[in-house]
Amino acid sequence: MALSNELIQEQLTNKFGEQLTNWEQQFGLLTFTAPAENNIEIMHYLYDNETLRFRFLTDLTAVHYPEKTGEELCVVYLLHNLIDNIRLRYKVYMPISQPDVQSVTSIFSSANWLEREAYDFFGVNFIGHPNLSRIMNVDDMDYFPMRKEYPMEDPTRRDKDDEMFGRGGSF
């Protein structure tokens, strides 16, 4: 039987029950939310299970929602089952004061730099990552630039302070 979104949802609910919430399908992509404490367990299950076989990590990224108190940071995993050609997305929310999540580098080697990038941009702390350091920005940077409160612009520039140049504008 071909693997479908409903089947995946059923299988995961049977295994993890109420832990997985916010099931939704947008543009045919099944999405759910998992607690940050056992994301590695879920990942292992998705990888090892003979029906699910999600063995390709397409993407891993983070999002910052300043308004959601207690779950400001979100890590999004996008998995792909190449055999049945079906994708799955799952999210893990965590508070910005303690942005801890388990690293999945033990399962996917590709997660290594993606997690470093998420750390560099958002400050997500991946527990168990072999080398969690900045990857894109200079090492002595003291903030996480992709968080919403930080400005995009280079603060040293003086010749572009006019609003007509797009600085300080409404966009």
């Binding site: 730099w113 941009f121 990857i135 894109m136 920005n137 630039p145 992709m146 995009m152 966009f171």
Partner: peptide, 16 residues
């Protein structure tokens, strides 16, 4: 890596 990091994703959040 990161020697020409240009902050695409940050810029994209500010562009229509």
């Amino acid at each position: 890596v990161g020697f020409i990091h240009r902050a695409f994703e940050k810029i994209a959040e500010r562009r229509p």
